[in-house]
Design a protein around this nucleic acid. Structure first.
Lengths: 136, 136
DNA sequence: TTAAGTGCAAATAGTTTGCCAGAGT
DNA sequence: ACTCTGGCAAACTATTTGCACTTAA
């Protein structure tokens, strides 16, 4: 009764490495197209589809997280638990450690709560960033 | 120096009323197309564009909230602070009051934190819902 | 009467996918 | 060699928008 399926062999690729490295350097939580432009400076032939495929894979493997911003997704190579701030005006995302608004950290192991298996949590604060507040 | 601009007059419409009422009846956090199908039973000629326009307006007026699910948006007429759970498999959204994982409520008034004006907060837990856990 | 709101369809934009060539082990 | 991975472009899907017509006030 054992599962006979072969696990697909995982190969490394310079594209995925470049995508992960460039994402790791950034603190700006780039959109796919922004990261694509940056990776293209290193690998001029990389395609946007490859960026999407690898961001999805990195996320599934726990090496990146997705931040849903409504009209698009932003990516972050910092997978340690932290919150974000989404500016309603410029739609940039910032890391946020709000002191007085401190959150419970996400469970590090999947945890069963009321019949749900919780394996992640994300908190996004919304409002106006300092730049947009200044230009009000 | 006073602002002479006329504020645009706001009219009621049976479409917006129907959209808000039907959304209020639902506890399922529908997608736009799901709500569209329901409203269409009352107003067979409403268009999807009208549903979008009014959901956006209800949200801006504080009568509904948007829940970003990555590939689409879900809507909720319950604007009182509460968290959500997004199932990674079926991508349904549930209300979530996680007891041990209790959150700080969102600030009811805009609050300035480290140069940011925070006017909202949303927390989404992710994982597997009871149904999908059963079918594993 | 008049401009806000709607219906419709076309346009937009982010993301996904099929296919075949290319590369990692 | 075997098959995972990528490049490319077409396809897909949620959402937005332009425009002429309705309708609330």
């Amino acid at each position: 009764m054992s599962d006979q399926r072969e696990k697909a062999m995982q190969r490394r690729s310079k594209q995925r490495e470049a995508i992960h490295e460039e994402l790791s350097k950034l603190k700006t939580h780039p959109r796919s197209d922004e990261l694509y432009a940056i990776v293209r400076r290193r690998l001029p032939n990389v395609s946007l589809g490859t960026v999407y495929r690898n961001l999805d894979r990195l996320q599934r493997e726990g090496m990146a997280i997705e931040i849903y911003c409504g009209d698009f997704v932003r990516y972050d190579a910092n997978v340690s638990p932290h919150d974000h701030f989404l500016c309603r005006t410029c739609r940039r995302v910032w890391d946020f450690e709000p002191g007085a608004l401190r959150q419970e950290p996400a469970p590090s192991e999947p945890q069963d709560v009321g019949g749900f298996r919780v394996d992640g949590k994300y908190t996004v604060f919304t409002g106006l960033c300092p730049d947009c507040l200044r230009n009000l």
